[in-house]
């Protein structure tokens, strides 16, 4: 009940109090390309990257923040703080990391950090103004993790854009993401090549600010 009241209040305040700088959270499952996208935006507009990217799951295990990113959208300027979240997962098995050449101790440490990262990302849901939900368009989008992330944003009244990432990869199916979540705006991009990022900036300006 209190949560519903807070959501209504948040929506009303958003109408009257358009923020000049939005706190933009990057959410999604593990290995969807959140940090690649955050890096691409930060590199293009600030000349520096935010964090490491890797094919090893749970490379981002702490919330990473970069402030005052100003992006020109053609019709104006967009100011945002980018908050790159660890990927959301329902399981963390240290043995999976050992398949990437880590020894037992390294893998266990990474697993422990990964679980803390997931908790931190969930806690941060209360501190973001808007969210980009980054999904990998080469895999089935109808997963419980994606459904839970979107359900939580809807329940909290946080505006979102779904990013269908990795469209540069052969066999990617951004339309499958659109079919899975027809109630939300889906922007197909490639964070790796920068394809369609201009469309993304316009969408952020139009839908999230």
């Amino acid at each position: 009940m209190l949560g519903s009241f807070k959501n209504v209040l948040r929506r009303i305040l958003r109408v009257f109090n358009k923020k000049k700088i939005i706190q933009l959270g990057f959410y999604g499952p593990v290995n969807a390309g959140k940090t690649t996208l955050a890096n691409k935006i930060a590199k293009d507009w600030l000349g520096k990257e935010l964090g490491n990217v890797s094919e090893i799951p749970h490379e981002t295990r702490q919330v990473q923040k970069i402030e005052n990113v100003e992006v020109s959208t053609g019709s104006g300027k967009l100011s945002m703080n980018i908050v790159d979240m660890p990927g959301i997962a329902t399981q963390v098995d240290y043995k999976r990391f050992m398949g990437f050449g880590m020894d037992d101790e390294e893998a266990k440490t990474r697993a422990k950090e990964a679980t803390k990262g997931v908790i931190e990302a969930i806690k941060w849901l209360d501190n973001v103004d808007a969210v980009l939900v980054v999904m990998d368009s080469t895999v089935d989008p109808y997963t419980q993790v994606n459904v839970t992330i979107i359900g939580n944003l809807e329940a909290r009244g946080i505006p979102m854009i779904i990013i269908a990432n990795k469209i540069d990869i052969k066999g990617s199916k951004p339309d499958a993401i659109e079919s899975a979540f027809p109630q939300h705006l889906v922007v197909p991009i490639s964070a790796a090549t920068g394809k369609n990022l201009d469309e993304l900036y316009k969408a952020i300006e139009n839908y999230l600010t």
Partner: peptide, 27 residues
């Protein structure tokens, strides 16, 4: 509900131990 699902994931992460419990699948 979605908030309960997030709490389920959060609790799962707290309970994971390297030897016996690696997490959940749910739908």
């Amino acid at each position: 509900d979605p908030i309960e699902e997030a709490e389920l994931i959060e609790t799962t992460m707290r309970e994971i131990d390297t030897e016996n419990f690696h997490g959940i699948e749910f739908y």
